[in-house]
Computed example of a mutant assay.
Amino acid sequence: MKTWSEVAEVQPMVSKIITNSIMKDRISHAYLIQGARGTGKEAIAVLIAKVLFCENLDGVNPCLTCNACKRIDSHNHPDVHWIEPDGQSIKIEQIRNLQKEFTYSGLESDQKVYMIKGAETLTANAANRILKFLEEPSQKTTAIMLTENSQSILPTIRSRCQNIDLQPLNARRFQEKLIESGLNEASAKLMSALTNNLDEAMEWSQDEWFAEARKLVVQLIETFTDNSNDVYLFIHNHWLQHFKERIKIEQGIDLLLLAFKDILYSHLGNEESLVFFQQDERLERLSMYFSQEKLISILHGLLDAKRKLKQNVHPTLVMEQVTLQIER
């Protein structure tokens, strides 16, 4: 999304709100942009920054070709500062360094912008430091905070920002884009359930790691149905060996959620909603093994596992706990 008209195609209300602000020269000193992955958070943040720095602004749209626009695209503009999680969180040292940068005059103008990606990962100390920054804004400073979960942000921070909520993308429209890009219908349905990002979906569809991840999900579920004592061995010898990083474990849990939802859909006769399994003998066998009550309990457990991962609980412990809950 390079222009506000392109933003309007997927986020019409957001485009209208921000372009009205631009036309009235009332760009906020702080934005909190919330939306799921792929809904356009970063693209909108970059557009706002370009509007502030573009050398040849055309109404509400940046020219996209001037030196400032190009450097913002490459994250190389001296007065546009990006803060991203260092590991699992954004730490107070990162905010201190940012504040130190902002004590100096802008290199090319009085305007300065800072973008915070993954704002929900701010540590308590870092969040309080940002709060003080927001309470005493410079006339030429614009803060843009990006998050997938604004409820994890301090209420005092939220209250000092203009909150921009992005709507989920239309799943059917996204599936059509994936099919146009070469995926079959089954793969398009699965990918659209996992991400709203076209490039990411295409990359995963061709990734051997992802193909193996799907196989491991099926193998793990079938291990539960064998009534054997091999589940914990499978978790340690296969699952955790493949899903090594925290973000990869989250992807594994997302796949498990989709798989168990499909088993529940099979119970309910809702075959059109299937995204992980095909309607075949395997799915019928799994739906006979897992009751509806048990499936609902498993889905709650998997959602709780995702929350624990976000809270930095050790991934091995998270998987052992969710395994124990499914086994009961």
Rank of each mutant, 00 (worst) to 15 (best):
I157Y: 00
R158Y: 01
R158T: 05
Q162C: 01
N163L: 13
D165I: 01
L166S: 00
L166E: 00
P168K: 03
N170S: 13
A171W: 10
A171D: 15
R173T: 07
R173A: 15
E176H: 11
E176F: 06
K177Y: 06
K177N: 10
K177C: 04
K177I: 04
K177A: 10
L178N: 06
L178R: 06
E180W: 04
S181L: 07
S181I: 08
G182C: 05
G182I: 12
N184S: 03
A186Q: 15
A186F: 13
A186V: 06
S187C: 04
S187F: 05
A188I: 00
A188S: 10
K189H: 07
L190Q: 04
M191D: 00
T195D: 04
N196S: 11
N197P: 13
N197R: 07
L198Y: 01
D199G: 10
D199E: 13
A201F: 06
M202G: 03
M202F: 05
M202Q: 11
E203R: 14
W204M: 10
D207C: 08
D207T: 15
D207V: 15
W209R: 15
F210S: 01
A211R: 11
E212Q: 12
A213M: 04
A213H: 03
R214S: 04
R214H: 06
R214N: 07
K215N: 15
L216E: 04
V217K: 03
V218M: 11
V218G: 12
Q219G: 07
Q219L: 13
L220W: 06
I221V: 12
I221Q: 02
E222Y: 09
T223L: 08
T223M: 10
F224G: 05
F224D: 02
F224I: 03
T225F: 15
D226N: 12
D226E: 14
D226L: 15
N227C: 11
S228I: 09
N229A: 08
V231A: 09
